[in-house]
Structure formats: structure tokens, C-alpha cells
Simulated scan of single mutants.
Amino acid sequence: MSFFKRLKESISSKTEAVTNKFKEGLTKTRNVFVDRVDDLFSRRKKIDEEFYEELEEILIGADVGVSTVMELIEQLRSEVRKRKIEDPNDLQPVLSEKLTELLKGSEDSSIKLAPGGLSIILFVGVNGVGKTTTIGKMAHMYKSQGKKVILAAGDTFRAGAIEQLETWGQRVGVDVIKQQAGSDPAAVMFDAVQAAKNRGADILLCDTAGRLQNKVNLMEELNKIYRVIRREVPDAPHEVLLVLDATTGQNALQQAKMFGDKTGLTGLVLTKLDGTAKGGIVVAIRQELNIPVKFVGLGEKMDDLQPFDSEQFVHALFGKWIAEEKAEA
């Protein structure tokens, strides 16, 4: 069975609504990236050095990342030799398959929650990436699943951050634990954990400051928050999610490297994927950092934050190729 047929069967078992969200959210990337690949594969009549160089340029232009592109091109060269592929069009499913493999990696992309009792998720990231909005949307998602959710306003530094989280709390219908602006974020977290325990909450979503003026202080603050949470709930936080803005491309990758293992990252949330033509950054981040992408923002609606699915991602980009293969069958 061909890769596209296997992918189509896998996708068909998932909800059509989710499939459509991925398709709509990746429209810009698909229109630029896939159309350029299509043009290359139809224009070139043989797979030679010029073909590889142009494909390399397209992949780098989609922010797949230089080192990842180099690895991908080498894998394609190997498959061409092994399968004796001569027609560029026959490389389409191979390219899709390799991208899926790169996205999957070896780590689970599902959110890890406590088997019983309170689950605590800590959000980190610089200002302006959509961290507070992500928390609000995730609160909506979990509340829709029947879970009791509480928000912790741990960003006491940025003007308006507490009010913004409160607005989300009102929209979603969940409590927000806060103190005054300028308060110790670790003290806010202590209060939030106590409130979550006392009120029988299932999920505590914790906002944190995103300032970078003094990176050392920021990391020390995050470590202090981490320690306070762990002291109160020994196996928490159950997830530490770094929120990144997909429209910043390679800058998002640099931010991820900066936070790195200093904050005990367990996963990434990539926002505003619908606003960029460089969705290849998902591949670069997944491959170069070996940290799973757990959620992606595919629009501005409340339910447009979706659990990341590598197969849905590839299907949304290369669905046209699947349709073409079906038509030829």
C-alpha cells in the first residue's frame, strides 16, 4: 500500500472537523510551499543536482531549517538510489513520508495529566507569542471535556497581563487566582495550588512572565515557581509548555533553544500557524530540539487550538497529491 493511501486511511478515522481545521490553518504554507514543490516536480524532467539544489532552496524558504533540510535531502538521495527513482513525480510520496517521520520523532505528543487528582501545566515563553490566549483556549478545551479548571495569573510583571487572563477566565467561565501587579509570582503559584486543591480542580493552568530584559532573573524566577509547585504537588508540573509564535520563523527556534532544558520543557505550543507561509518551522523545531509539538494554533476562534497531529499536518499540506493519486488509480 502506498504512503498516501495509508495516510488517507489513517486520516479518515479522525474527525472531519479537525482535518478541516488543519487544512484551513495551513492554507498559506500550502499555497507557497507545496505549490513551489509542485512546480519543481512538474518542470524538472530528471532528478539531478540542480533538482536537489532547488528543492533544498524551497525547503529552507519554508523554514524547515538548514540542518534538517540537509538531512532530508540526503535521505531523498538514498531513496532515489535504492528505489531507482527517475521521475521527480515519484518523489512526492517519499518526501511526504520523510516529513511525517521527522515530525513524529520518538516522543509522545499527547498532554500528560495526573492519573488522579490535580494536574498542573506551566506555560513559559516571551511576550507577544500568544501565551495568555493559549491558556484561555486550553481552559475552554478542558472545560468542554467536563473538567474543573483554574487559572493562575503568574505574569505579575507585564502591564495588563492579569486583566487579560481575567478576561479569558470570564469568557470561559473559570476562576482566576491572582495578586497585585508586581507581586512575587511564586507566591501567586502557591495560592493557586492551594485554591485548586481546596476547590477540587482537575486542571491548573499557570501563566508566567515573558520578559527577556534580564534572562538570568527570568530563569531564576521560573525555577522558583517550579520548586514551589513541586513542593506542593510532588509530581508536578505535569507539563512545562513553551509557547512560540510560528510567524517569527527561525526566531521561534532560537527562543526554544534559549529556554531549552533550563526550564524543564516537556513540549511546545506553536501559535499563529495560520498566519504564516513558513509552516516548515514545525519540522525544524521538532527535529532540531527533539521536543514534541503538543498544540498548534490554527486560527482565532476559541476551538482553533488543536492537539498536534503529524499525519493531519502532512495531509493538510499534501492533500492535493492524495487526490491526484486517487484520480490516477
Rank of each mutant, 00 (worst) to 15 (best):
Y52F: 15
L118Q: 09
G125D: 02
E71S: 15
I11M: 09
E239R: 06
T248S: 12
E74M: 10
E86C: 01
L242N: 09
G125Y: 06
K21A: 12
I177M: 08
V293P: 04
K131E: 03
R211A: 07
D48A: 08
T15I: 01
Q254S: 13
D48Y: 03
D261G: 11
N20D: 15
A152L: 03
I120Y: 00
F259D: 02
V149D: 05
V34N: 06
N89S: 09
G146A: 04
D202V: 03
W168G: 08
V293Q: 03
Q164I: 00
I47V: 15
G65P: 03
R43C: 05
E56C: 09
G169E: 02
A139Y: 00
Q145W: 04
P292L: 08
V34S: 05
I203L: 12
V283E: 00
D274I: 05
E101N: 14
E49L: 13
I291R: 05
A153Y: 08
K178M: 03
Q75M: 13
N214Q: 13
S106F: 00
T132H: 09
T167M: 03
I322F: 00
D184S: 14
R43L: 10
L270V: 08
F22H: 09
N198S: 11
T156V: 04
V69A: 11
D108F: 02
V243A: 04
A186H: 12
K5Q: 10
Q180S: 15
M70D: 11
F51Y: 14
G200E: 01
A209M: 05
S67I: 10
L273G: 10
W321N: 12
L91Y: 02
I11W: 01
G200D: 04
A316D: 04
V228P: 02
R77G: 13
I225Y: 02
Q164G: 06
G319K: 11
A139W: 00
L298D: 05
K320G: 14
F22R: 11
E79H: 14
S2F: 00
I58W: 03
F51K: 14
L298K: 05
L244E: 02
G105V: 07
A246R: 07
E288F: 00
Q194R: 13
I11P: 06
E50C: 05
F33L: 15
Q170G: 11
L244Q: 06
G260E: 01
G210L: 01
